[in-house]
Design a protein around this nucleic acid. Structure first.
Lengths: 358, 358
DNA sequence: TTGTAAGCGTTATCAC
DNA sequence: GTGATAACGCTTACAA
């Protein structure tokens, strides 16, 4: 293909659009030094010491000519893209945005970009997304969809791609993980519930293939045991999805059992708890007059609903930040052992939990 | 640097880690065809017709050998990264996640990845982030931080980087934009408020350098005018930030004026409206008994607060989807004229708006 | 302190 | 229908 300036360019249209970008060679000829010297100046390479005068001349030329490094070319040569991928189930799930923000902020400080991928809860999409990202597109991956046994984690180990799990961890901790301390959080919540005089406690739990769901149920049972209480089978419902509709259905199911309603329903998370509140309304049960409800997460506005929800607040941005730190460490020291980091949640005591007979 | 296999590799550690990845040349030697043929098969290039037998052989080898295209190398050659950037103020702002999801879903269907950047409301960070992304890292940008006069939009035009504005637009529509029809939404909301018998209407507006804020105020005034009403200066407060605290402060300011409270406060968005509800509580005013409140956005859980908030629901995922479509169009037809797409919001009538004297 | 040169892996074009 | 080749822009070991 011959251009108006007589050069040939075999690349497609899209490429030519930006083809007139200034590159290292342009700066080199403008300043009369070799391209390699320009490269050394521009990346502040400590190995090749450069005279101050040349460095200054090159930097000025780069600035006035509007030089921007071509990351594709640099990546091809260095094998690093200076970006990392984050895989989440659904960016609309309110737990993720604060985590992403923590990750992104930290990575940006270190000169990394963040690439986000949604899987839409599609287990197949997770592996595909990971493969996409691992294809020299990112230097490492933070996984927010981790299951107790996880295909993506296996893939990462096979391919040697640095990976950190955030929010959840695998059964055998094949990779580093940064999580909320769900078990401790639930034990604390049980302590508070019991301190409010409740003894007949019902639980809405979630599928046990996620570490969060498992740890919360475990913490709950440990908490109950510590007070000499147990969780009878007819006081436990397991939902498939942790959303409002599931919470409502689960609470309804509890009420349908041949027994009077429990004193309190402890839900696996806030959305499920809110669903349970709705179910109570439908049955003419007052919250917290007739029945108390607790959640987990402290998502936005749960302090504004009626009644304000008692819940555990995870420090999500901190969790995000630390997962980014872990990944950066792993880029520097690929052989380091996997580590589990637990971040403590914080109790938010609100009106949805009342004293018995209060 | 000499490896155990006698080859030399001048690249840094990080690069070597993945160095044993299978590449096109490996498949070529395994199948006994030329690399260019492998490339043609693997990209299903319609120009080079390939015999079925070779195609099949190559595809099988690629699969069993676990070939993954190196996107950095492909990008360098083609000038396209098959990814696009999205710039937002703050991923934690609840308007963005549904938009991002709409964008990401659509782009993934077309084989593009999505790169997200937060600016944290830092106007300088917007330009930096854009430059980062424009550096051959993405094929185009969707801008969610657009001001009526916007530096990033100017930059994109200068550099010839495809760009679409989402949620807001520039004064002179220098680039295509996909927005909510804020003016129409507000006119509809005014109609409903007036139909509920309200005449003394107060407004909490936002700075007029964003098209959303401006269009909402404009629509509001048009709506009032259509009913022969006007907006006296002492019934208007402008907040700096559209958050809860600002809404509370603004409503308090309204109440502090030497006049009895208005019948209704129409807020620029839901968070501001919720802040106004809090301010009413603090003054002992019942919502909606003494005063009605309306919002805009229909963010998650505003139907669960006390009282449930009357608001306009934007179709955010649709807005995201369409902005992605616009950008893809622009990649194909860079010379197309900028277009403005307006998406209609939908009224959510809830208890925070009551009939006068009801 | 700076120049030389050899690629990184892929793909568009041309030749056969 | 397939092979050969050069180039995309940058980086870095080595030579000078």
């Amino acid at each position: 293909m011959t251009q108006s300036d007589g050069t040939t360019d075999s690349r497609p249209r899209a490429a030519r659009r930006k083809a007139r970008r200034v590159k290292i060679a342009d700066i080199a000829s403008a300043t009369g030094v070799h391209p390699s010297t320009v490269s050394r100046v521009l990346r502040a390479d400590p190995r090749g010491r450069i005279s101050d005068s040349v460095a200054k001349r090159v930097r000025e030329a780069a600035k006035t000519m509007g030089y921007r490094r071509d990351v594709a070319a640099a990546s091809l040569r260095t094998g690093s893209t200076q970006s990392i991928g984050v895989i989440v189930h659904d960016i609309e799930d309110p737990v993720y945005p604060p985590i992403l923000r923590g990750i992104e902020k930290r990575l940006l400080e270190r000169g990394f970009m963040t690439v986000v991928g949604n899987t839409g809860y599609d287990i197949q999409a997770e592996a595909e997304m990971f493969e996409q990202m691992a294809t020299r597109m990112v230097d490492g991956v933070i996984l927010g969809t981790t299951r107790l046994r996880d295909r993506v984690v296996e893939l990462a180990l096979e391919l040697g791609v640095p990976l950190v799990s955030v929010l959840r961890n695998t059964e055998r901790l094949e990779c580093s993980a940064v999580v909320n301390d769900c078990a401790a959080g639930m034990r604390e919540l049980v302590d508070v519930v019991v301190a409010h005089g409740h003894r007949d406690i019902a639980v809405i739990a979630a599928p046990q293939d996620l570490s969060t769901a498992r740890d919360r149920l475990r913490g709950l049972q440990e908490g109950l045991a510590a007070h000499g209480l147990d969780l009878p089978p007819d006081r436990l419902v397991v939902v498939d999805r942790m959303d409002l509709a599931s919470g409502r259905a689960a609470a309804s199911a509890l009420f349908d059992r041949q027994r009077r309603p429990p004193q309190v329903i402890m839900a696996v998370n806030d959305l499920v708890a809110i669903g349970a509140i709705q179910a109570c309304r439908e049955r003419g049960l007052s919250v917290p007059g007739d029945i108390s409800i607790t959640g987990y997460n402290d998502i936005p506005l749960v302090d504004m609903i009626d009644p304000p929800l008692t819940t555990m607040a995870m420090n999500l941005s901190e969790i995000g930040r630390r997962s980014a730190d872990r990944l950066l460490e792993q880029l520097s020291f690929p052989e380091a052992k996997p580590q589990l980091t637990r971040v403590m949640p914080k109790l938010q005591l609100r009106a949805s939990l009342a004293k018995v007979g209060g």
